[in-house]
Amino acid sequence: MLRLDKLVKTYRTGDQALKSVEIEVPIGQVVALIGPSGAGKSTLIRCINRLVEPSGGKVWLDDVELTALSSGALRRARRRMGMIFQEYALVERLTVMENVLSGRLGYVGFWRSLLRRFPQKDVDEAFRLLDRVGLLAMADKRADELSGGQRQRVGIARALIQNPALLLVDEPTASLDPKTSRQIMRLICELCAERGLAAIINIHDVALAQMFVQRVIGLKAGEIAFDGPPDALTPEVLTRIYGEEDWQATIKTDETAEEAVA
């Protein structure tokens, strides 16, 4: 289980990105994090794995307090947190296989990682994951030859080869077309279900979030404005999160739900 206890982030400018945020995410639950730009969504995700250092509060992953760990212990703890980035964060000149195997760098020694010599079991697992995400035939292609959707699939495989307990996903569909966005969201949710993974997905597309996730958390100005099931995202709730607008067309309909499942 992931638990955030009164998490606070204040920048040197005095801007408070997170204001005493409290969240619990049980094993296997996929959560969408929505809210306007500047609400603190990306900051929250990065505070969990301490890519951004919290100013206060605590972060727990199972019985480990991540906010109390030394740098060495934090490196080891990050193995249990797979990160999927909006801009993919791939090494363009490396192959798809090499990018996936980079997810094992926290497990192999310095010289093996420098020479990119990974144990055979890691290579075998990378092939299995590439097959699962539909990229087995592209294992030897360079990352810069791939489409956006294919790059995101490589990022997913790279996160999963860490064998994490938690996925942190930052705007995985922001640069993708609508069809590919659905495919990527469906793939992430299916993989979480198959592996019993918890996930927090920062996403701007409210209707897309409603199609796939079990729970939605809405942030506004660094505070939780909503926490509940996707069907509870009424126009009134969206107004509370984002402000006044005609939200009816944004909300998932029965038809869009059926299309997402298909």
Rank of each mutant, 00 (worst) to 15 (best):
R116I: 01
V154L: 08
V8C: 15
E22G: 13
L7F: 11
A174C: 08
K252S: 15
R215E: 12
I201G: 09
D205A: 03
L69R: 04
K19H: 15
D227R: 07
G103K: 00
N49M: 04
L51A: 13
K141S: 06
M81I: 02
L74W: 02
I156F: 15
C47D: 04
A68S: 15
M83C: 12
D5Q: 14
R186V: 06
D254F: 14
M97I: 09
L233I: 12
P119L: 06
L74Y: 05
R215D: 07
L51Q: 09
A232W: 05
A68Q: 11
V96K: 07
F118L: 13
A77W: 02
L74R: 00
A32E: 00
Q29P: 01
V52D: 10
L160H: 05
M211S: 11
A73Q: 11
I251D: 11
L33N: 08
V91H: 10
Q150P: 08
I27H: 15
I34L: 11
L115I: 07
R158T: 03
K6Y: 02
L233E: 07
N99I: 10
K141Y: 12
V25R: 01
E53Q: 13
H204R: 07
R151G: 05
G243W: 03
R128M: 14
A262S: 12
A221E: 08
R132V: 06
G155Q: 02
E53I: 09
C47M: 01
L168T: 00
V96Y: 09
R76H: 09
W111V: 14
S55F: 12
T95E: 03
I200P: 12
V237D: 07
T253V: 10
T173L: 04
A32K: 04
G35V: 00
R50E: 01
S181Q: 02
T250E: 06
W111D: 10
T253Q: 14
C47V: 00
V133C: 07
D144E: 08
R132E: 11
G56I: 03
R151P: 06
A17D: 03
S147F: 05
A77Y: 00
S70W: 03
R3P: 11
E236D: 14
F127V: 14
L135C: 03
D231P: 05
I241A: 13
D15N: 11
A257V: 08
S42W: 05
L238G: 04
L129T: 00
T256H: 11
R153L: 09
K41L: 07
F110I: 12
L7Y: 08
T239P: 14
K252F: 07
V169R: 04
K58C: 11
P229L: 04
G38E: 07
Q152E: 07
L146Y: 00
P26L: 02
D63N: 14
P235N: 02
K141W: 05
L74P: 04
I251Y: 08
M97W: 03
G82S: 02
D122Y: 04
D62P: 01
G218Q: 04
Q120H: 15
D227V: 06
K58Q: 15
G56E: 04
F85H: 15
E92R: 13
M97F: 15
V96T: 13
V216N: 03
F226R: 06
M185L: 13
F110N: 12
K179V: 09
E255C: 12
G148E: 05
G72H: 12
R112V: 09
